[in-house]
Design a protein around this nucleic acid. Sequence first.
DNA 1: AAGACGGGGAC
DNA 2: GTCCCAGTCTT
Length: 416
Amino acid sequence: MNVDLRKSNFSASNLSTPKQRKWLASIRSALLDWFATSQRELPWRQTTDPYAIWISEIMLQQTQVATVLPYYFRFLERFPTVHELASADEVELMRYWEGLGYYRRARQMHAAAKQIVEAHNGVFPANFEDVFALPGIGRYTAGAICSFAYDAPTPIVEANTQRLYARLLQWDKPLTERQSQDRLWEFATAILPEKNGSRKVNYATMELGSLVCKPQPECSRCPLVNLCPTARSGLQSSIPAPKVKTVYSDRFEVALLLRNSDCEVPDRSKHSVAPKYLVRQCGPNEWWTGLWDFPRIEISAENFEELDRPLLVSSVHEMSSRKSKSSKRLNTHDSPLHAIHEAILNRFGIATQIEGSALRTIKHSVTRYRIQLRVCNARLIRPIAGDSQGFKWATLEELHALPLSASARKVVQGLK
DNA sequence: AAGACGGGGAC
DNA sequence: GTCCCAGTCTT
């Protein structure tokens, strides 16, 4: 089209001048042609069931398509309707979410399902305001559900479309700014057709952002290349503005494997009793809220190294009697192990003793932390106090049914 | 406006 | 290694 790209960085208004409307119509048209031949066949696009679309949208928050696919099928098979989800057992639900991360998504979804049963008679709401009001559903997800399920003209702005829209607008300010967000939502609204067909347009903008207008875009394959001022000016690498680099910090942890067979009288009724491991449920103000984990604490880099030393020998007895002639290492200064035992006692109220050096070290990451976790055998040197809440002993089989963090799951994998 | 929240894919 | 991902909610 004969649209002047040099003037398509609109100064203000809501993209409603004749020239802007013509430009938008050209984009829409080229986009839909491209989408018809280039779209991926994703399972959540083969349905208009708002429930299934909702599940997919929640799973897809900050999570890539390839990661979601297996979870999506498994989840819908087990929880095919709002009612099934609303009446789901919390533990089983979390087990179906395990590995996806951002576990509050699952809890909020559970709450939302109950809300839908209560307030909407189990029928997924059909207008934006009602959908938006549900826990875990923000502006993007509400718009996506209404558009995809009902073909409502609700705009969407998420990672893919945000990048695409910013480039089409040649918007060079950081996208986190309020002004930027307002502009993006304005574009997202303006790009939708007057009447029907918003579903397809929203699918198409996301798909183009995902497959072509990537962080490193492939403009030579883009159906909008001749309509895009950023491509014209060669500013693809600076638009959208690069995000502030994440500063990672190292973190060291130790997890304790405490077996009941080491500290309790075995059940005499059976000649072979499966050992049980001490686990606890993570509380509201810690990572993996609601999930189960082995007793685990952060430790210093020095103590972390100490746990890697072979043939580690220490006992509380040796440490508590400072005058005794225990091993040379323990005599020099406060044992690092003592510090760890103290920290475990303070944190969990259990008196423990680490045995030997770490079985293994697991690397994982949580948001901005790069974590190394030493897994250690340990024993209880005093019974667990009655007021220590949240603990339970679980067999290997029971551990398989409990929702764990990905790192705790790795620990369990090593227990066979 | 900025930070918390998980984990894995892709390069 | 680094960057990024169909965001939401809380400071």
